[in-house]
Design a binder for these strands. Structure first.
Length: 805
RNA sequence: GCGGACGUGGUGGAAUCAGGUAGACACGCCAGCUUGAGGUGCUGGUCCGGGCAACCGGGUGGAGGUUCAAAUCCUCUCGUCCGCACCA
């Protein structure tokens, strides 16, 4: 329809304007109160997809809304530009990952601008920029100095086909490599780690101060997995109960059940295995250990494999310190060397897995907690009085645990212990397209940090990408060979690069001060902007990224690099739902992308933004379906014909309609402001539609239409900017302040009061909002005939009166 | 197995936070006007059953419960989705 609404021209014009006029640039000494809005920086995968549109529309509307509310808003954008796809593309096409990545960044930047998202483009940060690499490496070295980085052997996922380590996420559920299809194995390799476990307790405690979705907090809490219990020493003994001198520690959350211990289990990797295994069991144990080592994590953790194949007797015994009785020591693959002490005491009476094992291997079962009379299960894990436990008998769980720990501590055998499921963060990746780890290896001095003044260590350009998946750095003589910073002798560089999660663990700090050439950021700039007031991103980052970034922030603060009191990076987090296509996850790897650019070419960015907001609650996953796009597009045309000065589609309101419409405008301000603050954008769009429908029915006023445009400006920025400029002599709606409602005008004059009889609606009365209880009751009783005296009348004026007969 | 979320018309969803008219708003569909036709635009209708109508009865996965009043709170149950998963 030709209503003069030239979508493409208008959107181009205003996007140009915001950029030229630097509307959304902000200086660090801006006098306004600060507000830091951040959408998780994207991996540059090419043109934006619908997930981006959703994410960056939320961010952009908050930026515009907060700006209209008088804040100096920091709205940066950057690119998580290291990562596997660029490297895989390089292997396939020979194109250098940087060339490839820069092209994808260009495409993504363009489509972000096409949806009208505004940023302070001077502050762009890219992970692969040498200026950023330099400071990522510098931070790594500070952590190394502080003892937060160490090198250790670790079992990693190794793909024999790709000749490289894989992240857990790259191993499919059948234990094969997602790229080559080869069966992934475990290998012991020297790897670099961040000591995130040192912060486990703080990471847990500080969750309380965050305004984050409950489920994300729960996920983090479970991931950290704090458990309280006791650790104590066990003496190794022979078949006759004579101690051999070796000891090992076990960890348990139920020391109160120790009298029920009928065997012990060590992890197959436990250091004592070779020492304690008796000659007659040696072959069997060796075969078992070998098989476990070769099996994948998946197989190992699978409960499919029969228990009879999952354990083996060592021939050795251990003395239960509680009753001095010897119990057999087994190995089992389900005992993990990475948790607790890698050894457990087994109490089949109180633990189902121990029960199953005992049954399979024909080991005794002793109950140490009295189950309730109606209990018909096997192991009983609930509370009850202790039995068969000498001096613990009769005590309930909490008291029994306390007494057992006290007993262990008095004798110096064991102590109260806290354990965490959280593991240290393995940051080494055998990859090219990542931030190089700034270390050289000297035959005499071992691993030596690259001197800070030599940073950044940047990967060379003249490399050959091999289809084997091996990092080209390993074969680049110029990069590999260097000299030791300590002795000047020949040395080789570390060829592993950092996990890309390292890059994303501090980029939000760099945004505060991206120009800094002397430091990763100045404390004062970070003090000015941090913490992020509103962080926006997908739930898929609920654990890893959000945990790592919290760890980095705490560590940087403790190292006096960031302000000491900056304990948390993201004060408020919003996790948006995913946009799915046909029920599946929408992602670049599945290729099922719907292009936002196509919609920008037709209905325009404003209609697309509005539709994505209108689709459903922001936190919910949605299946993509553009059926409703007609609705938001039609709505914007209706707004255009309503507000465009030369349009006569909607006549001016007359008589009573003037006040009615203006009052509705004031109520709209109240409603929309509330809904913006509650992230109820879908209902806010509905409110705009309702209001527009009212103006079409009752006629327009200048105030009503101007208010609509102002309130709609954060969501549909282009059309509102154009209409406002036409109505107000070139003025800019996004530079106006957010409207404030007149209380008296916003108050409703008439309320529909429901009259119920026994909870069923029997009448609807129009009353004033200040009607009192007596009057409400009187009106209600008048309006319905109930035949006799009511038993009871519940009046909740002005909304409802319920008459009980 | 443990933890969490969700279940409402033909469809997306609103009302759930704070118990108080269930179905806002939109898509779709139906009708009228507009138009040369189609489309666009404008107006009206659209949970189910009964009734010409006013109205009456039923209705938020299922079964109970609390309450004057339950989509909303509680218990159980079924289903869907997500996270963690042999964590001692």
């Amino acid at each position: 329809m030709d209503d003069g609404y030239d979508i493409q021209a208008i959107e181009r014009k205003w996007q140009q304007h915001w950029r030229d006029a630097a509307t959304y640039q902000v200086e660090n000494d801006d006098p306004r109160p600060k507000y830091y809005v951040l959408s998780m920086y994207p991996y540059p995968s090419g043109p934006a997809h619908m997930g981006h549109v959703r994410n960056y529309t939320f961010g952009d509307l908050i930026v515009r809304y907060r700006t209209m509310n008088g804040y100096g808003v920091l709205t940066p954008i950057g690119f998580d530009s290291f990562g596997l796809p660029a490297e895989n593309a390089a292997i396939k096409t020979g194109e250098h990952p940087r060339t490839f990545t820069d092209a994808r960044i260009e495409e993504l930047s363009n489509s972000l601008q096409r949806i009208g998202a505004t940023y302070d483009w001077r502050r762009v940060v890219k992970s692969h920029d040498p200026n950023y690499i330099r400071w990522t490496q510098w931070i790594f070295l500070q952590f190394l100095k502080a003892g937060l980085v160490y090198r250790a052997k670790a079992a990693v996922n190794w793909c024999p086909g790709c000749q490289t380590v894989l992240a857990n996420e790259q191993v499919l559920s059948d234990g094969t490599c997602e790229r080559s299809g080869d069966l992934v194995e475990k290998r012991e390799l020297e790897q670099w780690f961040f000591k995130i476990t040192q912060y486990a307790q703080q990471l847990l405690d500080d969750l309380d101060q965050l305004d984050w979705p409950e489920r994300v907090i729960t996920m983090q809490r479970n991931w950290i997995g704090r458990s309280e219990g006791a650790q104590f020493e066990m003496q190794v003994a022979d078949a006759d109960g004579r101690t051999t001198g070796e000891t090992f520690a076990v960890y348990t959350t139920r020391p109160d059940t120790s009298f029920g211990m009928t065997f012990c289990v060590l992890a197959p990797e436990h250091e004592l295995v070779d020492v304690i295994t008796t000659p007659e069991h040696r072959d069997e144990v060796a075969a078992f250990v070998d098989r476990v080592r070769k099996s994948t994590e998946i197989e190992r953790l699978s409960s499919e494999t029969g228990l009879d194949k999952r354990g083996v007797f060592t021939g050795a015994y251990a003395i239960n310190p509680f009753n001095e009785q010897p119990v057999p020591i087994y190995l089992a693959d389900y005992v993990l060397t990475t948790y607790g002490t890698g050894a457990i005491m087994a109490v089949p009476g109180q633990d189902q897995r121990d029960w199953d094992f005992a049954t399979t291997y024909d080991l005794p079962i002793i109950r140490t907690v009295q189950p309730p009379e109606d209990f018909d299960g096997e192991a009983y894990v609930g509370d009850g009085p202790a039995i068969n436990s000498e001096w613990l008998d009769g005590l309930h769980k909490t008291d029994a645990i306390a007494k057992a720990i006290e007993w262990l501590e008095e004798r110096g055998i064991g102590k109260r212990t806290v354990n965490y499921r959280l593991r240290d963060w393995l940051l080494s990746r055998q990859r090219f397209w990542g931030c190089p780890i700034p270390i050289v290896y000297c035959p005499d001095h071992g691993a030596v940090p690259v001197p800070e003044e030599e940073l950044p260590v940047v990967a060379p350009d003249d490399v050959e990408f091999r289809p084997t998946g091996e990092s080209p750095l390993r074969f680049h003589e110029g990069f590999l060979h260097t000299t030791c910073p300590l002795c000047g002798g020949p040395a080789v560089r570390e060829t592993d690069t950092m996990d890309t999660f390292v890059d994303s663990s501090w980029y939000f700090l760099r945004f505060c001060d991206p120009w800094n050439a002397d430091m990763p950021f100045s404390k004062s700039a970070v003090e000015r902007w941090m913490p992020v007031d509103q962080y926006i991103g997908g739930v898929e980052h609920a654990i890893l990224h959000l945990m790592y970034a919290r760890f980095f922030t705490k560590a940087l603060a403790d190292l006096d690099i960031a302000p000491a009191d900056l304990r948390e990076p993201f004060a408020r987090l919003f996790t948006q739902g995913m946009i799915r296509l046909g029920g599946g996850k929408m992602s670049k790897s599945k290729g099922n992308l719907v292009s936002p650019d196509d919609y920008c070419d037709t209905v325009g960015a404003d209609a697309l933004r509005l539709f994505v907001l209108f689709m459903g609650p922001p936190a919910d996953d949605v299946d993509w379906n553009d059926k409703g796009m007609e609705g938001t597009s039609r709505f914007l045309h209706r707004v255009w014909r309503l507000a465009e000065p030369s349009s006569d589609a909607v006549p001016a309101a007359t008589g009573d309609a003037i006040e009615e419409v203006d009052r509705a405008a004031h109520r709209l301000i109240v409603r929309v402001t509330d809904e913006f603050d509650r992230w109820s954008y879908n209902t806010a769009v509905a409110a705009f539609m309702e209001f527009t429908n009212l103006l079409y029915k009752r006629g327009q006023t200048q105030f009503a239409v101007d208010t609509l445009l102002q309130l709609l400006a954060p969501m549909a920025p282009h059309v509102t900017a154009e209409l406002w400029a036409r109505r107000h002599d070139g003025d800019h709606v996004h530079e106006r302040s957010w409207p404030v409602a007149d209380k008296a005008m916003a108050a409703v004059e008439q309320v529909t009061m429901i009259v119920q009889v026994n909870g069923k609606v029997r009448a609807k009365l129009e009353v004033t909002p200040d009607v009192d209880v007596a009057e409400a009751e009187r009106l209600a009783l008048e309006s319905v005939s109930i035949g006799g005296e009511p038993k009871r009348v519940i009046a909740k004026p002005p909304k409802l009166v319920n008459i009980v007969v």
